[in-house]
Write a protein that binds this DNA or RNA. Structure first.
Lengths: 195, 195
DNA sequence: CGTAATTTTCAGAAATTTCTGAAATATCGA
DNA sequence: TCGATATTTCAGAAATTTCTGAAAATTACG
């Protein structure tokens, strides 16, 4: 693996984490190597840096493209494919969350709606139907919120994240946005009940 | 598998999704069966409903306990262990996110801090160090936000999620919370740029 | 075209994860 | 203590996933 010790450690870490993130070790390592590289890399350079077979790199890149986590580049007078990660790290986060939502949430959302349609009136299913409805409602709330936040430009999103739950003082128990003219100047101390 | 067709389909779906969620099929199925059940279930009842070996159920329950996703109950005059999922579905969501954060984010946070300490001044690491710093900063922002939101009581959290990005009109570009006295009555239309 | 460079595919090997039955361990109450 | 009941452990089997080298397919350009 032709990398500095620092970079090697980062790449190996991403490899180890890969399986927890739903990708495999090699894919994690390839991604990490691309993320750190100043220049776009071609498949052979990745073979060198990550130390796996050429075919494995090919499959890994294919998977990263399916995740939309890498982009293809070309250098003039060189017909090999070069790959990079997006420059804007927030774009990476957005893509990551989008794709995980697509893989981990959406199928269940679809299934729950499907089951709700199919569901009959078996007395033995009363409670189960209620639980499924509750789960469906929760997922719908969360995905609506996510779709909503996803529309924000990055700058506003970062502001909103930075402000965090402080903003909750502006939202009443009933869920209405209420004006608190004094809010901007002095932060009211211990306004909310302790969590 | 001794379940109604509706429940069977739900349980099988959770099994299929399991691997995407970083747990295995059996664990997903056990969880689903517990989630749907009105009554706490013991291991033998789960064997019956899920249709795997007794030892597999035992291991699955152990894993679900490690995830803090099930709780142990006891019935008077019965010394078998019974299991349930929490009644409050929001508690489930919180636990799920906590545990995934612990497994998927925290180790990387730790590693990045570690690498930042170790890092020397190799000229070949200039760019890589900057990228790692950027990633660290981003993860720290997100986890601070998460810790902050996590402190909210559920009712306020749900309100905040329901309001979604509408609240962003209250946060200025500079990130300060600015009072908008007219906000409560009429929702200003198309205040924010279209995403 | 033809051919050299490059990428992809894929069958089987290797590695890893999951699952089981049998044995070991733990717990309760007589 | 003993024995009945319940749970856990674990070695090996089964299933799944990952990885590789070799072959096939694709592409660019003379």
């Amino acid at each position: 693996m032709k990398l500095t010790p620092l970079q090697r450690e980062f790449v190996l870490h991403f490899g180890e984490m890969g399986s927890r993130w739903g990708i495999n070790r090699t894919v994690g390592q390839i991604y990490a190597a691309l993320f750190l590289s100043e220049e776009p890399l071609n498949a052979d350079e990745l073979v060198e840096r990550v130390g796996v077979s050429r075919s494995n790199v090919s499959m890994g890149l294919k998977e990263l493209q399916a995740w939309r986590l890498v982009r293809l580049k070309h250098k003039p007078g060189d017909r090999r494919d070069y790959f990079t990660t997006p420059d804007d790290i927030w774009e990476i986060v957005r893509t990551l969350i989008d794709e995980r939502k697509k893989r981990e949430i959406d199928p269940t959302l679809t299934k729950l709606r499907e089951l709700q349609m199919e569901a009959g009136d078996e007395p033995g299913d009363q409670h189960a139907q209620a639980k499924m409805a509750e789960m469906l409602e929760l997922i719908e709330l969360l995905t609506r919120w996510y779709d909503d936040m996803n529309k924000l430009e990055t700058e506003r999103l970062v502001n909103l994240l930075s402000v965090g739950s402080k903003i909750s003082g502006v939202v009443g128990k009933a869920g209405k946005i209420i004006p608190l003219p004094s809010m901007a100047k002095k932060q009211k101390k211990s306004k909310a009940k302790k969590g």
